[in-house]
Simulated assay, not measured.
Amino acid sequence: MTDTISTDDILGKVTEIFREIFDEDDLVLTMDSTADDIDKWDSLNHISIIIACEMRFKVKFQTAEIESLKDVGELVDLIRSKQSQ
């Protein structure tokens, strides 16, 4: 049986990643946050986010999974699903 991390814990760690990448210590993410909500969230930063998440959570995303993400909540759910495999 594997230990599963809670959605809130994943969101907290994803928030830490975003704060590092965007250099904004007070950045607040919600499950509904999108690239439109964060000024500096461009394609290059998006790649940095994905790589940082793969490293932090020890998961590997498929290109199709990354392309289908609509918001932070979907990223959190994807990470959670990968960790339970």
Rank of each mutant, 00 (worst) to 15 (best):
D26L: 11
D37W: 06
S33F: 09
D71M: 09
K60H: 08
D26Q: 12
I21C: 06
S68Q: 12
T15H: 04
K82H: 14
T15A: 08
S33K: 09
S84M: 14
D37H: 08
E20V: 11
K13Q: 13
S84Y: 06
V72P: 00
D8M: 11
T4S: 13
G12V: 09
K58Q: 11
Q85R: 12
V72H: 01
T2N: 09
L11R: 05
M1G: 11
I5G: 01
I21Q: 01
E54Y: 01
D32F: 08
T63S: 12
T2R: 10
R19C: 03
L44W: 02
K13E: 14
I21V: 13
S33G: 08
F57W: 05
S48I: 04
T4I: 15
S6V: 05
D8S: 15
D25K: 15
I21D: 02
C53S: 13
V76I: 09
Q83T: 10
Q85S: 13
L44G: 01
V59N: 00
T7P: 00
D42W: 04
K82W: 09
S43C: 06
K13H: 12
D42K: 05
M55N: 11
R19W: 07
L75T: 02
T4N: 09
F57H: 01
T15I: 10
M55F: 09
K40N: 12
D8E: 15
T7L: 12
L75D: 01
D3V: 14
Q62A: 15
D42F: 02
D32W: 07
E74T: 05
F22Y: 08
K82F: 11
T34I: 12
T63V: 14
K60T: 10
I51P: 00
G12L: 10
S43K: 04
K13A: 13
Q85L: 13
D23E: 14
I49M: 08
L75A: 04
Q85E: 14
W41M: 07
V72M: 04
S81W: 03
D32S: 14
